[in-house]
């Protein structure tokens, strides 16, 4: 998804002031909400003790399956652990996995994109074919096969998510590099007799890579969703740890009796993913505005 939302990066901005103006009203409210959500999640990730005083792994069998109350905002799970505390402590895990997976995906994509966008014709041919093949395999298949080879775990599922998002990024980076390479200021630098390395380093890369930041922001939310899906399938973080996908996976067993085990970790995932998307789109709109003057 990220790929497509960000695919519009390269298109020229345009639009009637009326529609743009209205949209800005919506998005400025949305951006404020998104920033608030992200601030909360970042706090939960960096200093969970600030938001909750309980221990995420403290077992209290006598208090199992309590529905949400003032004592337990999000209720308790099958071992009497406080779900709210576990959701708070899960933020760190999910955020690290999301950011790291996006970094892996972007890194791999950068390599392929550079090969395709700036390399020789052969380099372009090879990288385009690699990306095509990666695209043809459903993302989850790539991830599953990789996990089967490397064994389930946090690192594996992070790399797996990165691997399955890489082809989309690579395609955008390649086309971005190609369009910048033909820009008039690059032509000017060539006419001025600058060396190829200097042109690439000083002119092409900065112009083409600014969107990567935007791309990354859009991607983190999606990567968190992906990673939690793997956790849900039992292929991510090992069970006792508080991770949103794994929590949902264990909550599924008790879906008939304890809806809160399913609802709250999922809400956390959706809020985080949506917040990253809103922020990424706002950044995207801003870069385009700057680009168009």
């Amino acid at each position: 998804m990220t790929e497509i939302l960000a695919g519009r990066l390269s298109r020229p901005a345009g639009g009637a002031p009326g529609i743009r103006g209205n949209r800005r009203v919506f998005s400025s409210v949305a951006v404020v909400i998104a920033l608030a959500v992200l601030a909360l999640i970042l706090t939960a990730a960096l200093a969970p003790q600030l938001i909750t005083t309980a221990d995420p792994d403290a077992v209290a069998p006598a208090e199992a399956f309590q529905s949400p109350s003032l004592a337990h905002f999000f209720g308790t799970d099958e071992s009497g652990r406080d779900v709210y505390t576990r959701v708070v402590f899960g933020a760190g895990n999910s955020l690290v996995i999301g950011v790291a997976a996006t970094a892996v995906g972007l890194g791999l994509a950068l390599f392929l994109g550079l090969l395709g966008g700036l390399g020789s014709r052969l380099g372009d041919f090879v990288s385009t074919r690699i990306v095509e093949v990666m695209f043809a395999l459903p993302g989850l298949l790539l991830a599953l096969v990789f996990i089967a080879i490397a064994g389930p775990g946090v690192v594996t599922s992070t790399v797996a998510v990165g691997l399955s998002t890489a082809p989309g990024y690579a395609r955008i980076i390649r086309s971005q590099l190609r369009s910048v390479r033909n820009a008039s200021y690059v032509e000017a630098a060539t006419v001025l007799g600058h060396s190829r390395a200097r042109i690439v380093w000083q002119h092409i890369l900065p112009g083409a890579l600014t969107p990567i930041f935007v791309l990354g922001t859009l991607g983190v939310g999606q990567a968190i969703v992906w990673a939690s899906s793997l956790g849900f399938l039992g292929l991510g973080v090992a069970p006792p740890a508080a991770e949103w996908g794994a929590m949902l996976s264990s909550g599924r067993t008790y879906i008939d009796v304890a809806w809160w085990l399913t609802v709250f970790p999922g809400l956390a995932i959706v809020a985080t993913a949506a917040a990253f998307t809103v922020l990424g789109r706002a950044l995207n709109a801003r870069t385009r505005q700057e680009a168009s003057g």
Partner: peptide, 16 residues
Amino acid sequence: LLAAAVPHFWLASLLI
């Protein structure tokens, strides 16, 4: 925005 951010497995659970 919300619909696009919902993981399949969670949506499935909610619908159930």
